[in-house]
Protein backbone atom coordinates (compact mmCIF):
# COMPACT_ATOMS: atom_id res chain seq x y z
CA UNK A 1 0.00 0.00 0.00
CA UNK A 2 2.83 2.40 0.73
CA UNK A 3 3.95 1.81 -2.83
CA UNK A 4 0.58 2.99 -4.16
CA UNK A 5 0.62 5.95 -1.81
CA UNK A 6 3.99 6.91 -3.19
CA UNK A 7 2.75 6.61 -6.76
CA UNK A 8 -0.16 8.91 -5.93
CA UNK A 9 2.08 11.44 -4.18
CA UNK A 10 4.53 11.29 -7.07
CA UNK A 11 1.89 11.87 -9.71
CA UNK A 12 0.30 14.77 -7.88
CA UNK A 13 3.66 16.41 -7.18
CA UNK A 14 4.63 15.69 -10.77
CA UNK A 15 1.46 17.38 -12.01
CA UNK A 16 2.52 20.58 -10.28
CA UNK A 17 6.03 20.28 -11.76
CA UNK A 18 4.45 19.73 -15.17
CA UNK A 19 2.40 22.93 -14.91
CA UNK A 20 5.55 24.88 -13.96
CA UNK A 21 7.60 23.12 -16.64
CA UNK A 22 5.07 24.22 -19.28
CA UNK A 23 5.94 27.83 -18.50
CA UNK A 24 9.65 27.13 -18.96
CA UNK A 25 9.17 25.16 -22.11
CA UNK A 26 6.77 27.60 -23.82
CA UNK A 27 9.01 30.57 -23.10
CA UNK A 28 12.07 28.64 -24.21
CA UNK A 29 10.30 27.50 -27.36
CA UNK A 30 9.48 31.02 -28.46
CA UNK A 31 12.11 33.28 -26.90
CA UNK A 32 14.91 30.67 -26.87
CA UNK A 33 15.77 31.69 -23.34
CA UNK A 34 15.68 30.04 -19.93
CA UNK A 35 13.57 32.22 -17.72
CA UNK A 36 15.12 31.42 -14.37
CA UNK A 37 12.81 33.92 -12.71
CA UNK A 38 9.88 31.62 -13.52
CA UNK A 39 10.15 29.86 -10.14
CA UNK A 40 9.93 33.16 -8.32
CA UNK A 41 6.77 34.10 -10.16
CA UNK A 42 5.29 30.99 -8.48
CA UNK A 43 6.25 32.44 -5.12
CA UNK A 44 4.61 35.80 -5.94
CA UNK A 45 1.45 33.96 -6.96
CA UNK A 46 1.40 32.04 -3.70
CA UNK A 47 1.80 35.25 -1.67
CA UNK A 48 -1.08 36.85 -3.56
CA UNK A 49 -3.37 33.93 -2.74
CA UNK A 50 -2.06 33.91 0.85
CA UNK A 51 -2.98 37.56 1.38
CA UNK A 52 -6.30 37.33 -0.41
CA UNK A 53 -7.41 34.32 1.60
CA UNK A 54 -5.57 34.89 4.90
CA UNK A 55 -5.67 38.64 5.41
CA UNK A 56 -8.74 39.68 3.45
CA UNK A 57 -10.58 36.40 4.02
CA UNK A 58 -11.71 36.15 0.44
CA UNK A 59 -12.86 32.77 -0.90
CA UNK A 60 -10.21 30.47 -2.36
CA UNK A 61 -11.31 31.05 -5.92
CA UNK A 62 -10.78 34.81 -5.51
CA UNK A 63 -7.30 34.09 -4.16
CA UNK A 64 -6.45 31.99 -7.19
CA UNK A 65 -7.84 34.64 -9.54
CA UNK A 66 -5.86 37.40 -7.88
CA UNK A 67 -2.69 35.28 -8.11
CA UNK A 68 -3.31 34.61 -11.81
CA UNK A 69 -3.99 38.26 -12.64
CA UNK A 70 -0.97 39.59 -10.73
CA UNK A 71 1.41 36.94 -12.12
CA UNK A 72 0.20 37.47 -15.69
CA UNK A 73 0.89 41.17 -15.38
CA UNK A 74 4.21 40.46 -13.67
CA UNK A 75 5.27 38.12 -16.49
CA UNK A 76 4.48 40.74 -19.12
CA UNK A 77 6.33 43.46 -17.19
CA UNK A 78 9.40 41.27 -16.61
CA UNK A 79 9.59 40.42 -20.29
CA UNK A 80 9.10 44.03 -21.36
CA UNK A 81 11.64 45.56 -18.98
CA UNK A 82 14.29 42.88 -18.58
CA UNK A 83 14.29 40.60 -21.61
CA UNK A 84 12.94 42.56 -24.57
CA UNK A 85 15.85 45.03 -24.64
CA UNK A 86 18.16 41.99 -24.89
CA UNK A 87 16.47 40.36 -27.88
CA UNK A 88 19.61 40.71 -30.00
CA UNK A 89 22.05 40.14 -27.12
CA UNK A 90 24.11 36.95 -26.67
CA UNK A 91 22.23 34.25 -24.77
CA UNK A 92 24.64 34.40 -21.84
CA UNK A 93 23.61 38.00 -21.17
CA UNK A 94 19.95 36.99 -21.16
CA UNK A 95 20.64 34.05 -18.84
CA UNK A 96 22.45 36.25 -16.33
CA UNK A 97 19.64 38.79 -16.52
CA UNK A 98 17.11 36.04 -15.77
CA UNK A 99 19.10 35.05 -12.68
CA UNK A 100 19.18 38.72 -11.72
CA UNK A 101 15.40 39.01 -12.08
CA UNK A 102 15.06 35.89 -9.92
CA UNK A 103 17.08 37.49 -7.08
CA UNK A 104 15.24 40.76 -7.57
CA UNK A 105 11.88 39.03 -7.01
CA UNK A 106 13.15 37.06 -3.99
CA UNK A 107 14.63 40.13 -2.35
CA UNK A 108 11.67 42.27 -3.28
CA UNK A 109 9.38 39.75 -1.60
CA UNK A 110 11.61 39.77 1.47
CA UNK A 111 11.39 43.57 1.76
CA UNK A 112 7.65 43.68 1.17
CA UNK A 113 6.53 40.63 3.09
CA UNK A 114 9.44 39.73 5.37
CA UNK A 115 11.73 36.72 5.46
CA UNK A 116 9.74 34.78 8.03
CA UNK A 117 8.03 31.64 6.83
CA UNK A 118 4.26 31.90 6.65
CA UNK A 119 1.77 29.08 6.95
CA UNK A 120 -0.32 28.84 3.83
CA UNK A 121 -3.98 27.93 4.09
CA UNK A 122 -4.67 25.14 1.58
CA UNK A 123 -7.37 26.05 -0.93
CA UNK A 124 -9.03 22.69 -0.30
CA UNK A 125 -8.82 20.53 2.79
CA UNK A 126 -9.51 16.93 3.51
CA UNK A 127 -8.64 13.53 2.22
CA UNK A 128 -10.38 10.88 0.23
CA UNK A 129 -9.89 7.58 2.05
CA UNK A 130 -9.78 4.60 -0.30
CA UNK A 131 -8.64 1.90 2.12
CA UNK A 132 -8.99 2.94 5.78
CA UNK A 133 -5.63 3.50 7.51
CA UNK A 134 -3.75 2.48 4.41
CA UNK A 135 -4.58 4.25 1.16
CA UNK A 136 -5.82 7.81 0.85
CA UNK A 137 -5.62 10.73 -1.51
CA UNK A 138 -5.74 14.33 -0.38
CA UNK A 139 -8.13 16.61 -2.25
CA UNK A 140 -5.20 18.89 -3.04
CA UNK A 141 -3.53 15.98 -4.84
CA UNK A 142 -6.69 15.28 -6.83
CA UNK A 143 -7.05 18.96 -7.64
CA UNK A 144 -3.40 19.12 -8.81
CA UNK A 145 -3.86 16.23 -11.20
CA UNK A 146 -7.16 17.63 -12.50
CA UNK A 147 -5.60 21.07 -13.04
CA UNK A 148 -2.68 19.52 -14.88
CA UNK A 149 -4.99 17.57 -17.19
CA UNK A 150 -7.20 20.60 -17.86
CA UNK A 151 -4.15 22.80 -18.56
CA UNK A 152 -2.65 20.22 -20.93
CA UNK A 153 -5.86 19.76 -22.89
CA UNK A 154 -6.45 23.50 -22.94
CA UNK A 155 -2.95 24.27 -24.21
CA UNK A 156 -3.08 21.55 -26.83
CA UNK A 157 -6.36 22.91 -28.18
CA UNK A 158 -5.03 26.45 -27.95
CA UNK A 159 -1.87 25.73 -29.97
CA UNK A 160 -3.58 23.62 -32.63
CA UNK A 161 -7.00 25.26 -33.02
CA UNK A 162 -6.66 28.99 -32.40
CA UNK A 163 -5.00 31.64 -34.54
CA UNK A 164 -3.04 32.97 -31.56
CA UNK A 165 -1.80 29.47 -30.69
CA UNK A 166 -0.72 28.72 -34.25
CA UNK A 167 0.99 32.09 -34.35
CA UNK A 168 2.97 31.10 -31.26
CA UNK A 169 4.09 27.89 -32.96
CA UNK A 170 5.09 29.80 -36.08
CA UNK A 171 7.13 32.29 -34.02
CA UNK A 172 8.84 29.54 -32.06
CA UNK A 173 9.93 27.91 -35.31
CA UNK A 174 11.12 30.90 -37.32
CA UNK A 175 10.75 34.49 -36.11
CA UNK A 176 11.92 36.19 -39.30
CA UNK A 177 9.58 34.11 -41.44
CA UNK A 178 6.76 34.86 -38.98
CA UNK A 179 7.42 38.59 -39.39
CA UNK A 180 7.24 38.16 -43.15
CA UNK A 181 3.71 36.77 -42.61
CA UNK A 182 2.75 39.99 -40.87
CA UNK A 183 2.94 38.50 -37.36
CA UNK A 184 3.89 40.85 -34.53
CA UNK A 185 6.56 38.70 -32.90
CA UNK A 186 7.04 40.97 -29.87
CA UNK A 187 3.34 40.81 -29.01
CA UNK A 188 3.40 37.04 -29.42
CA UNK A 189 6.37 36.65 -27.07
CA UNK A 190 4.64 38.89 -24.56
CA UNK A 191 1.53 36.70 -24.78
CA UNK A 192 3.63 33.60 -24.13
CA UNK A 193 5.11 35.10 -20.98
CA UNK A 194 1.59 36.01 -19.88
CA UNK A 195 0.34 32.44 -20.31
CA UNK A 196 3.43 30.91 -18.68
CA UNK A 197 3.14 33.22 -15.69
CA UNK A 198 -0.59 32.56 -15.27
CA UNK A 199 0.26 28.85 -15.12
CA UNK A 200 2.97 29.62 -12.57
CA UNK A 201 0.37 31.31 -10.37
CA UNK A 202 -1.84 28.22 -10.46
CA UNK A 203 1.14 25.99 -9.72
CA UNK A 204 2.15 28.25 -6.83
CA UNK A 205 -1.23 27.97 -5.17
CA UNK A 206 -1.32 24.18 -5.64
CA UNK A 207 2.26 23.79 -4.41
CA UNK A 208 1.64 25.78 -1.25
CA UNK A 209 -1.63 23.96 -0.64
CA UNK A 210 0.20 20.63 -0.76
CA UNK A 211 3.25 21.83 1.22
CA UNK A 212 1.84 24.76 3.19
CA UNK A 213 4.93 26.81 3.95
CA UNK A 214 5.57 30.10 2.22
CA UNK A 215 8.71 32.22 2.16
CA UNK A 216 10.47 34.42 -0.44
CA UNK A 217 12.55 31.43 -1.58
CA UNK A 218 9.60 29.03 -1.83
CA UNK A 219 9.63 29.13 -5.61
CA UNK A 220 13.29 28.57 -6.27
CA UNK A 221 13.68 24.82 -5.66
CA UNK A 222 10.40 23.77 -7.38
CA UNK A 223 11.43 26.13 -10.18
CA UNK A 224 14.73 24.36 -10.67
CA UNK A 225 13.10 20.92 -10.47
CA UNK A 226 10.48 21.94 -13.01
CA UNK A 227 13.20 23.31 -15.26
CA UNK A 228 14.86 19.90 -14.94
CA UNK A 229 11.55 18.30 -15.84
CA UNK A 230 11.28 20.48 -18.95
CA UNK A 231 14.79 19.50 -20.08
CA UNK A 232 14.12 15.88 -19.16
CA UNK A 233 11.00 15.76 -21.35
CA UNK A 234 12.61 17.78 -24.13
CA UNK A 235 12.63 21.55 -23.76
CA UNK A 236 10.31 23.29 -26.21
CA UNK A 237 7.89 20.34 -26.25
CA UNK A 238 4.53 20.67 -24.47
CA UNK A 239 3.86 16.91 -24.09
CA UNK A 240 7.52 16.62 -23.04
CA UNK A 241 6.87 18.99 -20.13
CA UNK A 242 3.97 16.81 -18.98
CA UNK A 243 5.98 13.59 -19.24
CA UNK A 244 9.07 15.15 -17.66
CA UNK A 245 7.06 16.66 -14.81
CA UNK A 246 5.20 13.47 -13.90
CA UNK A 247 8.34 11.31 -14.13
CA UNK A 248 10.30 13.77 -12.04
CA UNK A 249 7.58 13.80 -9.37
CA UNK A 250 7.56 10.01 -9.22
CA UNK A 251 11.35 9.71 -9.19
CA UNK A 252 11.64 12.30 -6.44
CA UNK A 253 8.98 10.65 -4.29
CA UNK A 254 10.45 7.18 -4.76
CA UNK A 255 13.93 8.50 -4.12
CA UNK A 256 12.71 9.92 -0.82
CA UNK A 257 10.79 6.78 0.15
CA UNK A 258 13.25 4.08 -0.83
CA UNK A 259 16.70 5.63 -1.04
CA UNK A 260 17.16 8.67 1.15
CA UNK A 261 15.36 11.93 1.79
CA UNK A 262 18.64 13.80 1.67
CA UNK A 263 19.65 12.19 -1.58
CA UNK A 264 16.35 12.59 -3.44
CA UNK A 265 17.56 15.61 -5.41
CA UNK A 266 20.78 13.81 -6.27
CA UNK A 267 18.73 10.88 -7.59
CA UNK A 268 16.60 13.25 -9.69
CA UNK A 269 19.60 14.93 -11.26
CA UNK A 270 21.43 11.63 -11.79
CA UNK A 271 18.46 10.38 -13.80
CA UNK A 272 18.47 13.64 -15.76
CA UNK A 273 22.15 13.22 -16.61
CA UNK A 274 21.64 9.65 -17.76
CA UNK A 275 18.67 10.61 -19.96
CA UNK A 276 20.59 13.49 -21.53
CA UNK A 277 23.57 11.24 -22.23
CA UNK A 278 21.35 8.80 -24.10
CA UNK A 279 18.91 11.31 -25.63
CA UNK A 280 20.48 14.76 -25.67
CA UNK A 281 17.26 16.44 -26.87
CA UNK A 282 15.28 14.99 -23.93
CA UNK A 283 12.65 12.27 -24.01
CA UNK A 284 10.35 14.03 -26.49
CA UNK A 285 12.76 16.57 -27.88
CA UNK A 286 12.14 17.61 -31.43
CA UNK A 287 14.54 16.94 -34.22
CA UNK A 288 13.48 18.06 -37.66
CA UNK A 289 15.86 17.41 -40.53
CA UNK A 290 16.35 20.27 -42.93
CA UNK A 291 15.43 19.63 -46.53
CA UNK A 292 17.36 20.96 -49.49
Amino acid sequence: MSFLNNVITGISLGSIYAIIALGYTMVYGIAKMLNFAHGDVIMVGAYMAFFAMGRFELPAIAGVLLAVVVCTALGIVIERLAYKPLRQAPSLAVLITAIGVSYFLQNGAQILWGAATKTFTPIVNGTLVLVPEQLSISYVAILSVVCCIVVMIGLTLFTTRTKMGKTMRACSEDKAAAQLMGINVDATISMTFAIGSALAAIAGVLMCSAYPVLSPTTGSMPGIRAFTAAVFGGIGSIPGALLGGILLGIIETFGKAYISTDLSDAVVFAVLIIVLLVKPAGLMGKYVPEKV
Binding site: K166, R169, A170, E173, D174, A176, A177, L180, K286, V288, E290
Partner: peptide
Protein backbone atom coordinates in the same frame (compact mmCIF):
# COMPACT_ATOMS: atom_id res chain seq x y z
CA UNK B 1 9.12 34.50 -50.17
CA UNK B 2 12.40 34.26 -48.30
CA UNK B 3 15.57 32.56 -49.41
CA UNK B 4 15.57 28.89 -48.47
CA UNK B 5 11.73 28.95 -48.42
CA UNK B 6 11.48 29.09 -44.63
CA UNK B 7 8.14 27.31 -44.44
CA UNK B 8 7.09 26.31 -40.92
CA UNK B 9 8.36 22.73 -40.98
CA UNK B 10 6.42 21.52 -37.94
CA UNK B 11 3.11 22.94 -39.10
Amino acid sequence: VPEGRRVFLQM
